[in-house]
Nucleic acid binder design. Structure first.
Length: 457
RNA sequence: GUGGAUGUAGCUCAGUUGGUUAGAGCACUGGUUUGUGGUAUCAGGGGUCGUGGGUUCGAGCCCCAUCUUCCACCCCA
């Protein structure tokens, strides 16, 4: 019995058009990764569970796809554990492998494992699928492609500056206007928590703050109070709810707010460094913004935090993100390796470009010329020209069957093939090819040399 | 993981308070046109109404479960 053809929830098939559009984005990103000096690596689709588990918080663990062991794994199981019905405990016994959840943690594992072969600072890029057992929504899939670039082994702030430029260059080359590069710094967040004497509630504090644009000032305050942050503390950080103006204005305001926090001042200095650098190296299209409510990836970010917002007219949230992590490889036993990196969310960038109609028309073409098949002898005559064209890098093909002319012409039309060649006995006699432009409908007779010239420009 | 919506032809969707053989547009196949596609015109094929139960004399329509897609929460690219 044939089962109904289908794919798992949150996964997708890609049509020829979709693949060429995805390649268009990927090659733009990859090209700039290379010009910025990053080198490609790849890591396995699945890792040992212990490599991934516990690296993304409890929420992350839940979203990791676990791979069932092979063989009769239940027989080997202690029946008490089985009876306890403790899914978490059981899963570690029946599943030793898991699909990768992002590219950063496998990269950290890679660096530690290959530390003796790597020349630091190591600049790597990686473009691979990652998997999350999430509930799908618009722009959220269970398999999606991440494009990451990271530098490990340098704590220079020039890297942060370069990543901002990288984002700007990539999105500019895709013609995407209105992208905002939002920046924050973990040290600013720590400083704020310190100033209000709630350092132990840093995570609760930042998670609540992160929701400002969603639930508003009152909502954030309510959540903070619920988490046990004092009324007095809220009063002290009141200014951050009304932080307005450009990058440098915001820095000035924060500077006075954080004057009593050493770590906060450190964060200010970092932001000032980046701001100053970018004054002499202005961005092309993207806008840089300081957003103190930005609090993603707190599990490992220690310094800069980036998040890329799609243009406002598109409802798409984040299309990229990244940050500085001082000790990512520490969990795998290699200390004092500072890293900073960014990620491009290809699938979301795709949806944004599609919605704004920014894909170039040119990438839709595949075959440039189709030869009509009139029969055996004529096909052979056509194939000689096809071969010559292919040698000149022109995508050419012969219709495989001597089908009705109408059918062959329709095929060319449907596939958006811009030119058709008709060569039957008449043309063969005078060694020419009847060349038809499908857009204008005009036809002309060319010999082989003229045909190649016509098509290979 | 929680809450809400959705599913009818390949696609986009109609389908009355539950009542005979479930419709349209586009797409597809063939003809008008045996060496010329798009436009026009004529004809044709195609649906166990997401799946499985239930209520009913009778279910595309009502009830339950399940899956898909979408939306919100959580989290995140």
């Amino acid at each position: 019995m044939a089962s109904k053809a289908s794919i798992p929830k949150g996964t997708r098939d890609f049509s020829p058009l979709e693949v060429s559009r995805r390649h268009y984005i990927i090659s733009a990103i990859e090209k700039h990764f290379k010009t910025f000096g990053f080198q490609p690596i790849e890591t396995p689709t699945f890792e040992n569970s212990e490599t991934l588990m516990g690296k993304y918080g409890d929420e992350g663990d839940r979203l990791i796809f676990k791979i069932l062991n092979s063989g009769d794994f239940l027989r080997k199981l202690n029946s008490e554990v089985y009876k306890s019905q403790d899914s978490l405990k059981l899963s570690t016994l029946i599943s030793e492998k898991a699909l990768k959840y992002d590219l950063t943690v496998p990269f950290a594992r890679y660096v530690v494992q290959h530390q003796n072969e790597i020349d630091f600072p190591f600049k790597r890029y990686q473009i691979q699928s990652v998997f999350r057992a999430d509930r799908p929504q618009k722009g959220r899939f269970r398999e999606f492609l991440q494009c990451d670039a990271d530098v490990i082994g340098s704590d220079s702030l020039w890297q942060e500056v370069e990543f901002i430029q990288l984002y700007d260059v990539v999105f500019s080359s895709l013609g995407l206007e209105g992208v905002t590069i939002k920046m924050n710094n973990r040290k600013i967040l720590s400083g704020l928590a310190e100033v209000i004497e709630e350092s132990d509630k840093l995570i609760d504090f930042t998670v609540a703050l992160d929701k400002l644009d969603k639930i508003g000032e009152e909502g954030v305050k309510k959540e903070m109070l619920d988490k046990g942050i004092s009324e007095n503390a809220l009063k002290n950080i009141q200014p951050i709810f009304s932080l307005e103006g450009d990058f440098s204005t915001k820095i000035k305001l924060l500077k006075s707010l954080l004057s009593n926090s050493e770590v906060g001042q450190k964060g200010i200095q970092e932001l000032e460094f980046i701001e100053k650098a970018l004054q002499s190296l202005p961005l092309k299209m993207a806008k840089l913004d300081l957003d103190v409510t930005l609090a993603r990836g707190l599990n490992y970010y220690t310094g800069a935090i980036f998040e890329i917002s799609a243009p406002e007219k598109v409802k798409m949230g984040s299309i990229g993100g990244g940050g500085r992590y001082d000790d990512l490889t520490g969990i795998f036993g290699l200390k004092k390796m500072s890293g900073v990196g960014v990620s491009f969310g290809l699938d979301r960038i795709y949806l944004v470009l599609e919605e704004l109609g920014l894909f170039p028309k040119a990438i839709e073409e595949s075959t440039k010329v189709l030869f009509i098949n009139f029969g055996e002898e004529e096909a052979l005559y056509a194939l000689k020209a096809v071969n010559a064209l292919r040698t000149s890098s022109v995508a050419a093909e012969l219709y495989p069957d001597a089908a009705k002319m109408k059918k062959q012409m329709t095929y060319a039309d449907k596939r958006n093939i811009p030119y058709v060649v008709l060569a039957g006995s008449t043309e063969m006699e005078s060694e020419v090819y009847n060349f038809k432009d499908m857009n204008s409908g005009e036809q002309e007779s060319f010999n082989l040399e003229e045909l190649i010239n016509k098509l290979s420009n």
